[in-house]
Design a protein around this nucleic acid. Structure first.
Length: 304
DNA sequence: CGTGTTTGACCCGCGC
DNA sequence: GCGCGGGTCAAACACG
């Protein structure tokens, strides 16, 4: 484990102290009652949180379903139109709906166009199969567009784009051509301290250096968002780290995100992040502080 | 001298 | 058809 984990541990509250103390004093009936009350309260809170989580999941599923329906409708509408043959579509211009749109441009009457489109779609399917975006927190003064994600990259271009004053760097996996993964790195328009890395494709090889990736600067992974919030972006400073990633609108991406979570290390990181988020939440810490002081007060009263 | 980066030129899709 | 803009190439350059 690295500095992140340790920093997370440092910022967390040691909740085991109270537990050991409670065990020592569990002889008192008053204490038992208080403990039962506390247990009931915590259980109720837990139940409430579970309900909230269930509600959130339901809302997410509903939204996701609506999105899928919308995408399907769009595709049908596109298919219904006698649209001119589409030329190559730039991967940079299709954001969230990239893979879903692929099916929408498949119909054409011309044989030449068919051949062309099929070829292009095959390429697109390969390229767009996995397009994920990761946000890395870095210093705004840091002008390098280098993101240490464990893999080795070879820079092959840099370009200033119209929509963003900061240049965009183009990287290919160092294992190319055997591995055709590409990466684009550009600073966020909204927050110059955030690097937006767009990954295209999937590595067909393990990380060249697990040591680097483990000791590296960017292993703090967060799932679910689609844009860097200032809160997420400001969680830490100094080091480049992914703060937001994975576009959930793409089914394959969902698969990739869940598979990422399957890794025990990532799970641990997620748990740490949750704990960190909780301990950083002023409401939570205030409530916790109130509970602890209340508990101490009860103990003092019981001892008298 | 080998390897990686920089950067201007070029290619090509797309909109007008 | 033309111009714009994103993406890629490759020669020149820097560095260890």
């Amino acid at each position: 484990m690295d500095q992140y984990s340790s920093s997370l541990v440092d910022t967390s509250l040691d909740l085991t102290i109270g537990v050991t103390r409670m065990r020592v004093e569990e002889d008192s009936p008053l204490q038992t009652n208080a403990l039962v009350d506390e247990l009931n309260r915590v259980s109720a809170e837990n139940k409430k949180l579970s309900e909230m989580l269930t509600l959130m999941c339901d809302n997410y599923n509903v939204l996701r379903k609506q999105l899928m329906e919308y995408v399907n409708k769009s595709n049908m509408a596109e298919r219904d139109q006698i649209s001119p043959p589409k030329k190559r579509k730039s991967p940079a211009r299709d954001d969230a709906f990239s893979s879903a749109v692929i099916g929408g441009v498949s119909e054409s009457s011309s044989t030449d166009q068919d051949e062309y489109l099929c070829k292009k779609q095959r390429e697109e399917t390969v390229v767009k199969e996995k397009v994920s975006r990761v946000y890395y927190k870095t210093e705004a003064s840091d002008t390098t567009l280098v993101v240490k994600d464990g893999y080795q990259w070879r820079k092959y271009g840099q370009k200033v784009t119209r929509d963003n004053p900061s240049p965009r760097a183009y990287f290919k996996c160092a294992c190319a051509p055997s591995c055709s993964v590409k990466k684009k790195v550009q600073r966020s328009v909204e927050d110059q301290s955030v690097l937006v890395a767009t990954y295209e494709g999937e590595h067909n090889h393990p990380m060249p250096s697990q040591v680097d990736s483990n000791n590296g600067l960017n292993r703090y992974i967060s799932l679910g968002g689609s844009a860097p919030t200032s809160a997420a972006a400001n969680k830490r400073s100094n080091l480049t780290e992914p703060v937001t990633t994975v576009d959930l609108t793409e089914s394959k991406k969902v698969k990739s995100s869940t598979s990422i979570v399957d890794f025990p290390e990532v799970q641990k990181l997620l748990v740490e992040q949750m704990a960190s988020s909780l301990t950083k939440d002023p409401n939570f810490t205030a409530a916790l502080a109130a509970a602890v002081t209340g508990r101490l007060y009860q103990q003092n009263q019981a001892e008298k």
